[in-house]
């Protein structure tokens, strides 16, 4: 364990419940580095929902709220409004954010409240054993789409963009440096920041979902996807001057 992680990880909570080859560790590292570089550890709270990705903050030695399925953004909204000058980061997954939590996602992004969301999209319900999620590709075979999925996958970035989030980015677990930079930008942006990370779940997803089985092969595929432009990656929106929810609220309060 390197010195940064000595400092940040709850060693008493180890080992993590992540499977070998999981992408969550890469996201966790990027987030810790971003928080450390910004020097905001004391002023930042981490909120998550339910699912593998929502366990990420539970191993970080900061103020953490591990909540209920789909509702992380609702809890985070309350926390942010209670302490408007502090930072709130949300860790969520494709199912947590776009399926059960879709309504809260729509409204939190619509308010453009100053919360930084890191959505780990592995295209699958990993924790429950590999069922279809809202981002599962069309025709992918999962435990609950045994004949291939017939649903059009949802695009979280397009949704966040449409709803008026200040900052929208998408990276993959093959882009840890870029991801870290985006997390920093997201935190620094006043307003709703949505950072999606395409991750791998080799245990519950595998070949049917990613076209590859081995974690390294999935990462290579992600790297190639970036080169080929088959999926929109990078900072997709950065509107730093857009008025944020609490700024609007304060204007009314001083009336």
């Amino acid at each position: 364990m390197n010195s940064l992680f000595e400092e940040y990880i709850r060693k008493e909570a180890l080992p993590t419940l992540f499977c070998p080859g999981c992408g969550n560790g890469i996201v966790q590292q990027a987030a810790i580095r971003a928080i450390d570089k910004l020097g905001i550890r004391e002023n930042t709270a981490l909120v998550s929902g339910i699912g593998c990705s929502s366990w990420i903050p539970c191993y970080i030695n900061m103020d953490v709220m591990h909540t209920i399925h789909g509702r992380a953004l609702a809890f985070a909204t309350g926390l942010k409004l209670a302490q408007p000058d502090k930072n709130v980061m949300v860790f969520t997954g494709d199912g947590d954010c776009l399926a059960i939590g879709g309504n809260h996602f729509i409204h939190a992004a619509g308010r453009n409240i100053d919360i930084t969301v890191i959505m780990i999209n592995n295209y699958i319900y990993g924790m429950t054993g590999g069922q279809k999620s809202p981002t599962t590709p069309m025709n992918a075979v999962t435990k609950t789409s045994p004949f291939g999925s017939i649903d059009y996958p949802l695009d979280g970035c397009a949704l966040a963009n449409t709803l008026g989030a200040s900052y929208v980015a998408r990276w993959t677990t093959a882009h840890p440096i870029q991801l870290e930079k985006s997390i920093k930008e997201g935190i620094e942006t006043k307003g709703f920041s949505y950072i999606e990370v395409l991750a791998q779940c080799p245990v519950q997803g595998g070949k049917n979902v990613y076209g590859e089985k081995e974690p390294a092969a999935i990462l290579r595929k992600y790297r190639d996807m970036a080169k080929e432009g088959t999926v929109s990656l990078g900072v997709l929106k950065s509107e730093k001057t857009k008025e944020e929810y609490i700024e609007r609220l304060r204007k009314k309060e001083t009336l």
Binding site: L79, Q83, H104
Partner: peptide
């Protein structure tokens, strides 16, 4: 204090728990 009308009752109950951890 702070008032917010949330998107539904689920969110309202969650938000008050979040706010309480923020010390309110």
């Amino acid at each position: 204090g702070t008032f917010i009308q949330m998107e539904d009752e689920i969110a309202s109950a969650c938000a008050i728990v979040g706010a309480r951890w923020g010390g309110r």
